[in-house]
């Protein structure tokens, strides 16, 4: 059953890619989930568009150029939203929503000025079954860097996520940590968005941790469980899509759907039993 992964390079790359993607998706997704920033992240992934468009404008279909400019656009959106939230006392997800939609509009504006070749859309929305070795390398480097930095800010970030006021009392530089964390999210998004597309990159951020929260009660089992579920869904999604000729990205996400409903069912039964 698994020999297709040895036989076909495109399936092997897709599996390797999703496995690499899961580590940082679960790590970042955990904090995004508890910081109530999951949907804002979906928004943010679209806010990268003007940067990607500028990269395309000047350098054509170069993944490196579009990644770098997309990253800069994302940083600008986050910096503006963090700073304006600090000054205006508005919630960060509100300012982020404002800046992302402006950024998206500006991106669409730029793309329509230049014309919108189909290739760019492929590039913007990813192709899981055509991941190249170069893309795998870029993904590995970026995701490894994301995980290393996340490891170093884990403790202060955890304290901030549990109780931000108390973290400030403990003299944690909350605005800097927040900005650094969002920088990691952008770096992750800008790469995963181009390789896997919006459905998979955002789906991998949202679903594993959400399912983990439904199925597990402790932080360590939640993170480990989310990782294992992600791998199971990646393998089964890819196998099913190959065997029955199904669209790959939706099949993968729908595999998560099975666990999501199991988790919901468990939670409902558990709550009823407690009543």
């Amino acid at each position: 059953m698994f020999d297709v992964f040895f036989e076909y390079e495109f399936l092997r790359n897709a599996l390797l890619g999703t496995c690499i993607l899961t580590f940082s998706s679960v790590g970042l997704g955990f904090f995004l989930h508890y910081r109530r920033l999951i949907l804002a992240t979906d928004a943010l992934s679209h806010g990268l568009l003007p940067g990607v468009a500028v990269g395309f404008w000047f350098f054509g279909l170069s993944m490196t150029a579009m990644t770098v400019f997309g990253f800069i656009a994302g940083l600008l959106v986050v910096a503006l939203s963090v700073i304006s939230s600090k000054w205006s006392q508005l919630k960060e997800d509100s300012t982020l929503s404002g800046f992302y939609i402006l950024s998206l509009a500006f991106g669409v504006f730029l793309v329509s000025l230049k014309g919108s070749p189909v290739d760019l859309y492929h590039f913007l929305f990813g192709q899981i079954l055509s991941i190249t070795n170069e893309q795998l390398l870029i993904l590995s480097i970026v995701e490894f860097a994301v995980l290393v930095i996340l490891f170093f800010i884990y403790k202060p970030l955890l304290k901030m996520t549990i109780d931000e006021d108390y973290a400030r009392f403990l003299k944690i530089k909350t605005h800097s940590i927040k900005f650094l964390f969002m920088t990691l999210v952008i770096a992750h998004l800008v790469v995963s968005f181009q390789i896997f597309g919006t459905l998979l990159s955002v789906g991998f951020l949202i679903l594993p941790v959400l399912i983990g929260q439904l199925l597990f009660q402790q932080i360590h089992s939640l993170i480990l469980g989310s990782l294992v579920i992600s791998w199971i869904c990646s393998i089964s999604g890819l196998l099913l899509s190959d065997r029955f000729d199904l669209p790959t990205s939706p099949t993968l996400i729908l595999a998560f759907g099975v666990f999501f409903f199991i988790g919901l069912f468990k939670k409902i039964i558990f709550s009823k039993a407690q009543e």
Binding site: Y34, T161, I162, D163, E164, D165, Y166, Q213, F216, Q217, Q218, I219, L222
Partner: peptide, 10 residues
Amino acid sequence: DNVDKHFPFT
């Protein structure tokens, strides 16, 4: 207290 009590913690 501003603690998010849904955190997966004992």
